[in-house]
Amino acid sequence: MSDIVRTENLTFAYPAEEGQTPVNALDGVSVAIREGSFVVILGHNGSGKSTLAKHMNAVLLPGGGKVYVDGMDTSDESLLLEIRRRVGMVFQNPDNQIVANVVEEDVAFGPENLGVPTEEIRRRVDGALKAVGMEEFTLHAPHHLSGGQKQRVAIAGVIAMEPKCIVMDESTAMLDPLGRREVLDTVRRLNREKGVTIVLITHHMDEAALADRVVVMDNGRVVMDGAPREILPQMAELRALGLDAPPTVELLHGLKEDGFGVPLDALDIQECAEAICRAL
C-alpha cells in the first residue's frame, strides 16, 4: 500500500520573540504513514507532536525538508484544497470548530466548500452522521450536545469531505472518560470498516494501545517508532521521555520484579488478566 502522508527531513521553527534564538519545534522528522493504518503519535507537551500534525494538511508549511500528502507537495499552494480534501483534521476544542447552528448544517460545511452538488451533500451528511452514530441529532443545536457528541459531529464534518486520512490533534484531551471512549470507538470503527487512515495525537498511553503503530516524539525528533507491543512495554525509556507506561504494563513490570514469570507485552486488561492467570 502507498503512503498517505510522508515527511522527509522536516524541520520547523515558530517565529521567536525578540532577542531569542528560534528553537526548532521539529528537527529532521522523517515519517511515512501508510494508507489504512492507525498511527498514534505520543509525546509530552512541547515535543513537537502537534506541530507535526499541523504539517499533515498544510496548516503549517515546512521550514525545511518536504511533506507529501498522497504524493502532493504541501508547499505548492495550488494543491492546497486538494490536500485538505484528502487529509481532514479534528482539533482539541470541539466548540471552536463547529461553524453552524444546526448539526446537519455543520456537517455540510466541508462539502459545501468543495462545491459538491446538493443531493450529493444530503447523502454525504446522512452517511457521515450515521458513521459516527449521531443520526438522531441531525437537527439539534450543537451547544446542547455533550463534549463527546460535539467531537463526533466534528468528525462527521470531516468524514463528509470523504478524506483518506483523519488527523486527530489531541481531540480527546478535553473530554471526560465517557466522551473519550465514544470518540475512540468511532475512529476505530472508521479505520476498520471504511479503511480511513487515522493519525491520533495524544498523551494518553491507553489510547496508544489501540494503534497499529506508535511514534514517540521528543524535542522535535522521532525517538521511538514501532508496534504498540514493542514500544509500550519499554517502561524506563518512556519514563525518561516524560510519559507513563499503560497501567497494565506497570502492573506486569511490578510482578516481574517480584519474580513472577509474566510476559511484559500484554496491553489490554483482558490479555493482562489472562497472562497473570497463566503465571499463577
Binding site: R84, Q97, N113
Partner: peptide
C-alpha cells in the same frame, strides 16, 4: 482556532 478549522475544511 475557528479560522484554522474552517480552512482545514476547505473554506475559501
Amino acid at each position: 482556532e475557528l479560522a484554522v478549522a474552517m480552512e482545514c475544511r476547505c473554506y475559501h
